[in-house]
Amino acid sequence: MTQHAESTEHIGSPATGSRPGFNLDGILYHCAGDWPDEQTVASLEPAAASGWPWLQQLRWFSQLKQFEQQNGVNQGSRYLLLQIYHHQQLLVLLPLRTSDDSHSLLALSNYYSPEFAPLMPDFVPALSSGIAPLKQTKLWPLLVAAISTLWPQWQQLRLQPLSQTTATQVQQQCPASIKTLVSPFGHNWRAAATNHTDYWQQRQSQLVNTIRRKKKKLLQQGAAIQIHRQLTPELLASYWHIYQRSWKQPEPSPDFINWLLEFSSQQGQLRLGLLLINDQPVAFQFWLVQQQQAAIVKLSQDQAFDTLSPGTVLMAAMIDEVMTQDNVTNIDFLTGNDDYKAQWMDECLPLLQLDLFHCQSLSGWLQYLTQGFRCKLRQLSTLRQRRQLIQAPGSQHD
């Protein structure tokens, strides 16, 4: 990788030229970094992959960027879209933003985001005659080389949320000049089953009996369940009617969720469940279905009906629906470690934050050493607290 002179400047506009070039393993690539205008984004969209996982197409990131800008989130940030080309063929996109102090790059993600991943076309042709197609093993060296070409003064790149598998792959692929630090970010509950019968056999009898008992009571109250695949204005109104009467914190704005509901409806991935009592909507569940997998995006119920547990009964109906009608074999609760998820899911996987440090620069080395020291201190503090808990009077370990 080309070395650059030390710079104390913040991350700003890319190097001069519309698409600066760089060489990696004897192959010439070109890259761009500014976030393009809407017309250019629309032209890139067909080449920017099918949006796995969970509709994370370029439009997803454009909407996320718009949501943050309109709601004053990360006000000091600049939004960037790393684009890498070979012979005019788009190879990969990486949506980013700068940190508030403009010293670091961060994955464009927030509390709406499932696992972050670069956007790659569904099909990448051979790079040139006699050269194999782009492989995953070359993805992160390529991205790091492009970042260093466009922003030679970069110090740190933060990626989150990542699965353990993805974090390990990135670490293994990064060149020797890149140091990494991994830290906890969150949790991801999941379940797998060959069919709905298999799924329910894995659940505890207490949950199954609760569903049966609560369903009976709800039917006596005039309850009905609807599961929709197309969004309508009436369904959208019911969604927000329930949300506003639930325990959920108010959204900064309904814009992103409204867009995601509409977009998933257009893509055929929306599963919107409603439970009504005497035609009054009291619980909703917003799911996505893609590639025989289902993701639970949002769920809520009117607090006035909590004693009837409409959300529990609706959850059971949604599981049966996606497993019997969509042949779903995996259910993903996305992010969060709420206690109730354990009774529905099989395993809780860690979500991680991975920091990459540009250690060819002194400032990148200092960032790496400073954050590594802080990480060690946090680990020691956590270990000390655990020991104190074990040694406390009355501890079960006494």
Results as ranks from 00 to 15, higher is better:
152 P>Y: 04
153 Q>M: 12
153 Q>K: 01
157 L>M: 05
158 R>F: 05
159 L>M: 11
166 T>I: 07
167 A>H: 01
167 A>T: 06
167 A>E: 04
168 T>R: 13
171 Q>N: 07
171 Q>A: 14
171 Q>M: 15
172 Q>G: 01
172 Q>I: 03
174 C>W: 08
174 C>A: 14
174 C>S: 12
177 S>T: 07
177 S>D: 10
178 I>R: 04
179 K>C: 14
181 L>V: 13
181 L>M: 11
182 V>S: 10
183 S>E: 15
183 S>M: 13
184 P>N: 09
184 P>A: 13
185 F>D: 15
185 F>K: 08
187 H>R: 13
187 H>W: 13
187 H>S: 15
188 N>R: 15
188 N>E: 09
188 N>A: 11
189 W>P: 14
190 R>D: 02
190 R>I: 14
192 A>M: 13
193 A>Y: 04
193 A>P: 03
195 N>K: 02
195 N>T: 07
199 Y>I: 10
200 W>I: 06
200 W>S: 11
202 Q>V: 06
202 Q>C: 10
203 R>F: 04
205 S>N: 13
206 Q>F: 02
207 L>P: 09
207 L>Q: 04
208 V>W: 05
210 T>I: 05
210 T>N: 13
210 T>H: 12
212 R>Y: 08
214 K>T: 02
215 K>C: 11
216 K>H: 14
217 K>I: 07
218 L>D: 07
218 L>R: 12
219 L>D: 13
220 Q>S: 13
221 Q>F: 03
223 A>D: 10
223 A>I: 11
225 I>T: 14
226 Q>F: 10
228 H>M: 06
228 H>L: 11
229 R>V: 01
230 Q>H: 14
230 Q>T: 15
233 P>N: 08
235 L>W: 08
236 L>N: 10
237 A>D: 11
238 S>L: 08
240 W>F: 15
240 W>K: 03
244 Q>F: 03
246 S>C: 14
248 K>C: 11
249 Q>K: 15
253 S>T: 08
254 P>N: 09
258 N>G: 00
259 W>S: 04
260 L>W: 03
260 L>P: 00
263 F>N: 10
263 F>E: 13
264 S>T: 12
266 Q>S: 03
266 Q>W: 00
267 Q>A: 07
267 Q>F: 05
268 G>Q: 02
271 R>K: 09
274 L>W: 08
275 L>D: 00
277 I>Y: 04
277 I>W: 04
277 I>L: 07
279 D>V: 01
282 V>L: 03
283 A>R: 02
283 A>I: 03
283 A>K: 01
284 F>T: 04
285 Q>A: 10
287 W>N: 09
287 W>C: 12
291 Q>S: 09
291 Q>I: 00
292 Q>G: 00
293 Q>L: 01
294 A>L: 02
295 A>E: 00
295 A>R: 02
297 V>S: 04
297 V>A: 10
297 V>N: 04
297 V>H: 12
298 K>S: 06
